[in-house]
Design a protein around this nucleic acid. Structure first.
Lengths: 212, 212
DNA sequence: GTCTATATGGGGATAGAC
DNA sequence: GTCTATCCCCATATAGAC
């Protein structure tokens, strides 16, 4: 774990995060990034070699800690449960809360990160592949195991499907909250994160528990 | 409804669909599109004025018919139900089946379209706004009404939330099927569309029905 | 490590002949 | 409606001074 990152490098990473979230990968130029970070254009190539490597570094910087936090929280719930399986709602909380925490944590980069998540998943280029395989596969397996302990009647395959569904609920909700606010004509607001989290967990738990 | 579209215009639309699905909006150049469509570069500007207008035309060409089909199917189910509210599972079927039908309909452009859906929703630029407002708002309202008739205990606001959740399940599943296939190490396959549809409907129905 | 200056290529859009 | 040729801008990346 590298502790002290160069100020320039960090500034570039932060600016990249903000601008890519606002305009997308391809539409964000290194010129715009270096201008926003108030560093020289050539600094990007010096610190990250290429633009693609910069994007990957930026994504890893955020996704790594989140998946660690998810696993830690699951660990904690498993310890608290002792011999018994972790309650379904707790599993879902371990899966989703760390994402929302990272979002509301600091003032800067809050909401932006959620857009990044959606973008990274939808980008057809090669960004996704190494990310999914490296960062997500262990996490998915751990949660899959916990899920099967909580719901022993679910087949292995069915558990994968439903975990995928639950992810869909969460990701779509947080990455496209504007759509909900628009179609409900302002009646639904995502601003109360705790209430939103409970709503999502409640919906997913019911779906996961339903008889096969 | 314009019946006869110029052959050139149609070729451009098809090529755009395929290339954008494969590489994303910004990464797809007009030069690549016209080369694939075997038409002249200037034809794009002649028929569509700008690249952005071309993208919008391409999206509308696909999304319009799908939302029409959704409403028609809902109409049909409402007639069949007579005075009674439409069953929850039927509402969900009307919402999701037309998308899958369009996908498996023709040989070309099948799977590609699903990527477009995900891309269009994640693109931070202005593509989304007019599309959501024009094509989706009426559809959402109709389905929202049907949902409240089927589940009278749900508050208006809660119904919007859960409809949003159901959309998330469906969209995430179809746009990111590779993720599921990857994390489940091949155990789950999306190829059986009918089974997938039933799985999604089953999960969503349970979530929608759960007590508030 | 940081900067200026530049190489090199590709992009969208258009003018004007046919 | 279709083509060629071109304008003009912006992109990434690098070379080389400091």
């Amino acid at each position: 774990m590298p502790k002290e990152i160069h100020a320039t490098k960090l500034a570039i990473l932060k600016a990249t995060e903000r601008l890519v979230a606002a305009h997308g990968f391809e539409a964000t130029s290194l010129r715009a990034i270096t201008a926003a970070a108030k560093v020289n254009l050539a600094a990007v190539n010096y610190h990250f070699s290429t633009k693609d490597a910069l994007i990957l570094a930026m994504l890893n910087r955020r996704l790594g800690p989140i998946n660690e936090a998810r696993l830690l929280l699951l660990d904690q719930f498993e310890q608290e449960a002792g011999e018994k399986p972790v309650a379904l709602e707790k599993i879902l909380e371990a899966l989703f809360r760390p994402v929302l925490d990272k979002v509301s944590g600091r003032s800067h980069g809050g909401r932006d990160f959620l857009r990044l998540l959606g973008l990274a998943l939808s980008e057809p280029s090669a960004y996704l592949k190494p990310l999914v395989e490296k960062e997500f596969s262990e996490k998915t397996r751990r949660f899959h195991r916990a899920l099967r302990r909580a719901l022993p009647d679910l087949s292995e395959c069915e558990a994968y499907w439903r975990l995928h569904f639950a992810h869909g609920v969460f990701l779509h909700t947080v990455t496209h909250s504007e759509v909900l606010e628009c179609t409900s004509r302002g009646r639904c607001r995502i601003s109360d994160r705790e209430a939103t989290l409970q709503r999502i967990i409640h919906f997913c738990a019911a779906g996961l528990r339903s008889a096969a």
